[in-house]
């Protein structure tokens, strides 16, 4: 029978909290940049300039067909080196956190753009016709009529995607960056208490994500009522 020993957790809490901050920072940046860039991609895909629409579609399909871990590895191993070579930065600069943020943001943008595109499609053609009938341009109709309604319909999906994104930040493990999961694993390895630390990390993720998903569900129900 395994003998549990949780004693290494209390002392490691500050380190773990710092890790959690890294996780949340990556999540926040990826959400904000992802939604902005994702909205632009979704609008570009509706553009009447065909090459632009194709480029946007190509971007979304590329990122959606490649695993997140692969994307992160590109951003950890290849892009920094490329940039260092390009700008002659010192080798010592630690670009991992920035790389993680950029990688996640660009990756999530592809998923957000699909959600936003579906949201735009959920707004009826009649609304666009009505906006045009009032003399609005295409851009005005999109900005003033379609997108506000689309976003309202999409809020639950965007939030659910954010929860998934928060969980996915644990994958920065592949760069040995100490996010919450990475921190927990490091502590476990240091103290020979991997079992306890992994269970603890799993429990923390579960509590946070379950609570968040309950909130989203309640929001959804209130919106429906």
């Amino acid at each position: 029978m395994y003998e549990y020993d949780w004693s290494s957790i209390p002392g490691a809490l500050p380190f773990l909290a710092h890790g959690m901050r890294v996780s949340l920072e990556i999540t926040a940046v990826a959400i904000v940049v992802g939604i902005v860039w994702g909205t632009m991609l979704a609008v570009l895909r509706l553009s009447s300039v065909k090459p632009l629409a194709w480029l946007a579609a190509g971007y979304v399909n590329l990122f959606r067909s490649v695993p997140l871990v692969m994307v992160l590895l590109w951003f950890f191993l290849i892009v920094p080196q490329f940039l260092q070579d390009l700008f002659n930065l010192g080798r010592a600069t630690d670009t991992r956190l920035v790389s993680a943020m950029v990688g996640f943001a660009l990756f999530e943008a592809a998923y957000y753009s699909e959600i936003i595109r579906a949201g735009i499609h959920s707004v009826g053609q009649g609304q666009i016709a009505a906006a045009h009938a009032l003399g609005m341009t295409r851009g005005q109709a999109l900005r003033l009529v379609v997108l506000p309604q689309a976003f309202r319909n999409m809020v639950p999906l965007l939030l659910t995607q954010a929860i998934i994104l928060f969980q996915d930040t644990s994958l920065v493990y592949v760069s040995a960056l100490a996010d919450f999961f990475g921190a927990a694993y490091k502590v476990g390895e240091r103290d020979g208490r991997i079992v306890e630390l992994l269970l603890f990390a799993g429990a923390v993720y579960f509590v946070l994500c379950y609570a968040a998903s309950r909130l989203v569900r309640r929001l959804q129900r209130r919106a429906a009522a």
Binding site: Y2, Q167, L171, F181, L199, G202, Y205, F206, C209
Partner: peptide, 23 residues
């Protein structure tokens, strides 16, 4: 469903691989 949806895949993998064989 909630258990498997609300824990990151990586954490689940490590739990299957490192934790469960111990306990």
């Amino acid at each position: 469903v909630e258990v498997f949806r609300n824990i990151p895949l990586l954490a689940q993998l490590f739990i299957w691989y490192f934790v469960l064989p111990e306990i």
